[in-house]
Design a binder for these strands. Structure first.
Length: 870
RNA sequence: GGGGGCAUAGCUCAGUUGGUUUAGAGCAUCUGCCUUACAAGCAGAGGGUCCGCGGUUCGAACCCGUGUGCCCCCA
């Protein structure tokens, strides 16, 4: 079979993914093996694959594939989140394009369109995950609005109400005037905005005093003012406290109060208090029992209560009222002022603080066990630094507003009678049963839906129907899950709440390890986002480089818990690595055709094999350890180095036969075995190419995907050291050749001066091949007209048909000498220090003494070499 | 304003309870090679005030304090 010049990923990837799925390798059912469960952080049903997903799911796939090869029964559950706000926005936009206004539809009609949209466009992302090679169990795809799942969400709501952990309350909330919904704090994005601060004077109802001047960034809200507040220690205003002033334009008489909340230095030191439209003012209003005047409608226009500008948008009103205030002489001045403004994460509308009757989860009542689980390391965070962040948030936790003014989602199971009483139950019949007085009365269900996170917090157990079908065999087998892989930005939205729900409903934590990925940023360190347009087209990249190369590129640059700056050059590196693997395969296939069964395995090849076996085992153990501690990026780097440097650059060159010479069968077969072991180690990271080469090398009885990885035995350190010596000698002599401008094609003669020939004799054939030496001899004295190189305690003389550059040779030796002498001094300082000798551990002392002896020996070798040069 | 994190080579990062050579890797750079798997390659090299200052210690990239700069979360 002729292999192509370069590796071509396209067809290979399609072929193997289909084969894996058809073979049922990704499907899991409970069995006698140990489960390794991962639930995917469900992407929004509206989502398309981006770099964040790519990183996140590559990591999960690495863990899951590794577990599969280690003999676990892995189950990686796919699914999507109904994403109430995002999906509803998409559907509204689609309807608008068709000329249909949401307001013209009934709830059921709208939901009809929404489901239609979901079936047609939703979940594209799940198809895209297949392209990446993700070994998800596709027979278990879940959706947060599946019928059972929906029931469970309702059940949890009713249950928490019964337990008094959900309440209904009027609170200041973040209002999205475009989506006409409340937002949780986490859905508000604060941005710095260049605005203005307006100084306005209010006429005083005090004889002899004319005005008091306040400073505000929101002049349009003065119509809702119900007080002016100053600091009690502010001498400028002391005499005014307890007096009254008039709100300009409408002449409402409001009190002047004092509270140390006010900053004396800020603005004029006098604050207008608008309890209905500012979080802090609301708190002040409650404290001083001030009137709450809600001057805004739910669409951001001014309400009847404002008295003026009714029906006009608050942003337009700001301009108009400024002019009117100027006309009446109430405007003192306008200054530039930069401040934080909240924007809706979904609609980008300026968020308005607004009073509203909403449903809340009393977080203090459910947070304690979830905090304890993480602080006691029952759940481990990787990296651990996120523990602090988590503790801080959990200790200062605030109640969770869970109602959203949307139709797409889980409708709140509360019914109101005409007197405004409300009843929570699974359905209307249950309301009637529990409250006989409601029979025959007209009941109306709450129009709102629950926050999306109120359903996704059940994900780790409800994907196994842990709540809709309690104690079923699957949830008992798969729950708690093993590892959660997610972005640190949703530690509070999702991770913390899943832990709470797990404790509350399963009585068990939902996962043992949480691996926080970094955030994917562009080369300039900016977060990837649609608006910046700096998010690359992932499927295009997969087409261009291959899925394995994309996986490689994103993992190699991805230190645990640190953000990664995405740069396409790492994908190129991944593609080059594919090609390297492919070319090594081509080399082996060439050797396969030229085997020789006669005689024993040559001594130098045997040495190379022993060395690589030891190297492989050592590295396998290192990689095991790294993966156990979630250092995935380091593990990949280690495997990359093992394959490229140790296997390809050293080992294959060492066993390479002369031109068109055969290779001993024993060597060939062992080499194929080595390569297969390397492919297995790499498989979780780069599944496609490894599977392909696994089958190209020879006829296999099983697929690499499910081949069990067996832990390896002990390592022979002596052979590792011998290999390191050989590498060191080769590199040093190649450097000497280079520096003396000996052409690669020109052969040299090498004379070694050493007190112990033995270590060199086993490796001398390889050495000769690697430095292009026609002969290697041993000598007890200096060789004239040669290039001398000092290494350890030994000297090497290179004889070549080449003028010797004594000057550069001398320079190199002197440089080395200076280094060794400097080193000797630093070691000497320690050893001459009595306190060091007294206090240091014996093994540390021994090391220092050996360092000193080695340095002295090396200095002697170098000095002798220098002497010979003159 | 409150909290958390980071600072090591041009870039991205390792550096595992303070001592295994006056700090390592990959990428990038430079030099020489179209050497019979691979120029998407091979061989080799150069490159660092471990952010500044102070302290603890026989010994600090590592521990403590402080300053500076950057990032994130919350208000």
């Amino acid at each position: 079979m002729e292999l192509s010049k370069n590796y071509l990923p396209g067809e290979v990837e399609l072929k193997w993914y289909k084969h894996w799925v058809d073979s049922g390798y990704f499907h899991s059912t409970p069995n006698e093996k140990k489960a390794y469960t991962v639930v995917i952080p469900p992407p929004n049903v509206t989502g398309v694959l981006h770099m964040g997903h790519c990183l996140n799911n590559t990591i999960q796939d690495i863990l899951v594939r590794r577990a599969r090869m280690q003999g676990f029964n892995p189950c990686w559950v796919p699914g999507t989140d109904h994403a109430s706000i995002a999906t509803e926005a998409k559907v509204v936009a689609m309807l608008r394009e068709r000329g249909i206004a949401k307001s013209s539809l009934t709830r059921d009609e709208f939901l009809g369109y929404a489901w239609e949209w979901k079936e047609k466009y939703g979940g594209i992302i799940l198809q895209q995950l297949r392209k990446m090679g993700c070994s998800l169990d596709w027979e278990r795809t879940s959706f947060t609005m599946d019928a059972d799942y929906y029931e469970s969400v309702i059940k949890v709501f009713v249950d928490l109400c019964k337990k008094g952990k959900i309440y209904r309350g009027k609170r200041m909330i973040n209002w999205d005037v475009r989506a006409k919904t409340a937002l949780s704090d986490e859905e508000v994005i604060h941005k710095e905005v260049a605005g203005k601060i307006y100084h306005l004077r209010y006429k005083l109802d005090v004889p002899g005093e004319e005005y008091i001047t306040i400073a505000t960034v929101r002049p349009e809200t003065i119509l809702g003012d119900s007080a002016i507040c100053v600091h009690p220690k502010d001498d400028r205003y002391k005499k005014l406290v307890g007096q009254f002033a008039f709100v300009p334009l409408i002449n409402r008489r409001i009190p002047i109060i004092a509270d140390d909340y006010v900053e004396i230095e800020f603005g004029t030191g006098a604050l207008k208090v608008t309890p209905a439209h500012d979080m802090n003012d609301f708190i002040l209003g409650q404290k001083y029992n001030l009137e709450v005047i809600d001057t805004m409608n739910d669409d951001g226009t001014l309400s009847e209560a404002a008295g003026l500008y009714i029906g006009q948008d608050r942003i337009d009103v700001r301009k108009i009222i400024t002019k009117d205030l100027e006309a009446t002489g109430n405007l003192v001045k306008i200054e530039d002022y930069t401040h934080q403004v909240g924007f809706s994460e979904r609609t980008d509308a300026i968020v308005e603080p607004r009073l509203s009757l909403q449903w809340w989860v009393d977080m203090k009542k459910i947070a304690a066990p979830a905090l304890e689980a993480v602080m006691s390391d029952e759940i481990s965070f990787h990296p651990a630094k996120f523990k602090n962040l988590y503790r801080h948030w959990m200790e200062g936790i605030k109640d969770w507003c869970i109602s959203r003014q949307l139709w797409w989602g889980h409708r709140i199971p509360a019914w109101y009678d005409e007197e405004g009483n409300f009843y929570v139950a699974h359905n209307e019949a249950e309301v009637n049963a529990n409250h006989p007085e409601t029979k025959g009365k007209k009941l109306t269900q709450d129009a709102d839906c629950l926050d999306t996170w109120f359903s996704s917090w059940l994900w780790p157990f409800e994907v196994f129907k842990g709540l809709s079908n309690p104690n079923n065999a699957e949830v008992n087998y798969y729950y708690p899950t093993s590892t959660l892989v997610t972005a640190p930005e949703i530690i509070f939205f999702w991770v913390a709440r899943m832990i709470m729900a797990g404790e509350e409903y399963m009585g068990k934590i939902p996962f043992k390890d949480v691996y926080f990925t970094g955030i994917v940023r562009d080369k300039q360190g900016r977060k990837m986002s649609k608006s910046l347009g700096n998010s690359p087209d992932l499927l295009g990249l997969i087409d261009q480089y291959g899925a394995d190369a994309v996986r490689f590129g994103i993992m190699i640059a991805s230190p645990a818990g640190n953000d990664l700056l995405f740069d396409e050059s790492t994908l190129e590196q991944g593609r080059n690595f594919n090609n390297k693997l492919w070319n090594a395969t081509k080399l082996l296939k060439m050797w396969e055709a030229r085997q020789n069964k006669d005689g024993a395995i040559p001594e130098d090849a045997q040495f190379a094999m022993d060395w690589f076996q030891a190297k492989l085992t050592t590295t396998q153990n290192e990689v095991d350890e790294m993966l156990k501690t979630f250092r995935l990026s380091e593990a990949l780097k280690t495997i990359y180095g093992l394959i490229w440097d140790d296997f390809c650059s050293w080992y294959l060159e060492w066993i390479k036969p002369g031109f068109e010479q055969p290779m001993h069968q024993g060597v060939y077969e062992k080499t194929v075995e080595f390569y297969d072991a390397l492919l297995q180690l790499l498989h979780p990271f780069m599944p496609f190419i490894t599977e392909e080469i696994h089958h190209t090398l020879k006829t296999q009885t099983e697929d690499l995907c499910v081949k069990l990885y067996t832990p390896t035995s002990k390592v022979d350190d002596a052979v590792l050291n011998a290999g390191a010596l050989l590498q060191n000698v080769i590199s040093t002599l190649r450097d000497a050749r280079n520096k003396n401008q000996i052409k690669p094609k020109d052969a040299i003669e090498l004379h070694i001066q050493t007190s112990n020939n033995a270590p060199y004799q086993t490796i001398q054939n390889i050495l000769a091949k690697q430095i292009n030496a026609s002969a290697i001899q041993y000598t007890t004295s200096a060789i004239g007209s040669s290039i001398v190189v000092a290494l350890e305690k030994d000297k090497f003389y290179i004889v070549a048909d080449q003028a010797i550059d004594t000057a550069s040779l001398k320079e190199n030796l002197l440089k080395d000498l200076a280094h060794q002498q400097g080193f000797l001094i630093s070691v000497g300082k320690k050893l001459d220090n009595e306190k060091f000798v007294q206090n240091a551990k014996p093994e540390v002392l021994a090391i220092e003494q050996k360092k000193k002896a080695d340095a002295l020996a090396r200095i002697q070798t170098i000095e002798e070499s220098l002497a010979q040069l003159v």
